Amino acid sequence: MKFTLSFLLIWSLSFSAAASPLDGQETNGGDPFVAEFLVVLDSVLARLPLTLPLENGAAIKREVLEEAKATVVLSSVDTLILDGREVAAINQPLATPPKIVISRTAWKFLSEKQKNLLALHELLPIVGIFDEDYKNSTALWQLIQPDNPISFSTMETAVVQCNREMFESVSESRFKRMLTQPQIESLIFQALEYECPAFIEKMTTWNINMDLCLGSISLTNWFLRSHIQSGPAAVEILQTLQVQGVPTYKVCAHKINDSCELVKKLGSPYQTQLSSAMGCK
């Protein structure tokens, strides 16, 4: 009888675990701490915009973080000590494959916000992004706060669809109040990505600074490299950037960006139309 009861108990627990909400997650051998870490990380990444502005003025694509999450090996231990002090997690970006180790003791006492920040903080170094004092992870976390996501998500969808009516329905004061600077910069890059001149025009009307760098590449150079074409939308965007004062010659991260020289290399028919739109001589 004891054997039968023990067997039924084990079977029951196994069935319950198989039917848990974590079913389908890679749990690294059934580790519930790793499973929860993955759930938190998945939730954060799903709510972030497609282009992620960083603390130093650079930006990366969300898919870069998603790809890193798929390759990193996660594990947990009771406690973690680094440089003589207890820490919540340790990342090893140079390991093959990269690794993240979580402290079970620390994780249990973290708030939802702290878990979100920790998940981002540990993943960023895996893709080569320095996160001193949680500056970048905090900047990304702010993008998904309760007072931002609906409004930001709505604007992001409007940019992708280039919904001019939506842009006109939002007041300048509300736009600047509901969005952070990193969010605005993210929307500007997405407007160029999806060739939405209506949004760029609205930014010009509201005197939003678009003299930006994406790492070592200027906004104009980035647009020309990713959209080498002379369609009406591309020309309109370049004309609007010129009106707004976005320079064709700009130094980003000590690298010279001469957009007019870049257009010359494109040859016909791009050179004539794009050079005119940019005011190149």
Rank of each mutant, 00 (worst) to 15 (best):
V160R: 14
N56E: 05
I150P: 00
I144Y: 13
K61G: 11
I144S: 08
E112T: 13
I90C: 00
L110N: 03
V87G: 00
I150K: 13
A89T: 12
P182R: 07
I126Q: 00
E66H: 02
I144M: 06
E165L: 14
F189R: 07
V64K: 06
S75L: 04
I184R: 15
E67I: 14
P53C: 04
R62N: 11
K113L: 04
H121N: 11
E66S: 11
K99D: 01
E185V: 14
S103E: 06
L82I: 02
K176G: 10
G128Y: 02
K115P: 09
E122H: 05
F109I: 12
S186N: 09
A88D: 08
W141I: 05
I102P: 10
E66K: 09
E172H: 13
P125S: 05
G84Y: 10
M155E: 10
S76T: 08
R177S: 11
A158V: 11
K113W: 03
I100P: 06
S103D: 07
A70N: 13
F175T: 10
T71F: 11
F109R: 15
L110R: 05
L94N: 13
F167S: 03
G57H: 01
P97H: 10
P146G: 15
Q92H: 12
A68M: 04
E66T: 02
P93N: 07
R177D: 11
L80W: 09
T157P: 01
I184E: 11
L192N: 01
E63K: 11
S153Y: 05
V160K: 14
K61L: 06
L54N: 04
A191C: 08
I126A: 02
I126C: 02
D131G: 01
E55G: 00
D133R: 04
M178P: 00
E86W: 00
D147A: 09
S186V: 04
F130P: 01
L54V: 05
L140Y: 00
R62K: 15
E86F: 10
T154D: 11
R174P: 00
Q190D: 04
L54S: 03
L123A: 08
S153H: 08
P53G: 01
A68Y: 10
A119I: 09
T154L: 12
T154Q: 12
N136W: 02
L74I: 01
L94C: 01
M178I: 03
P149F: 15
I81N: 02
G84P: 15
I129F: 07
A70C: 01
I102H: 04
R62H: 01
E86R: 13
F152R: 12
L179W: 14
R177C: 03
N148A: 13
E67R: 15
A158Q: 05
I60T: 14
Q183V: 05
P146T: 06
L54R: 02
Q145R: 13
M155R: 07
T180D: 08
L54Q: 01
I126R: 06
L54A: 02
A158K: 02
V101P: 07
A58Y: 06
L118R: 03
P146Q: 14
K135E: 03
Y134K: 07
K176R: 12
V170G: 08
I90H: 04
D78W: 06
S169K: 12
A106W: 14
E132W: 13
N136P: 05
C162H: 06
S151I: 01
A139V: 07
V159E: 01
S151Y: 15
N163Y: 12
L82F: 03
Y134A: 08
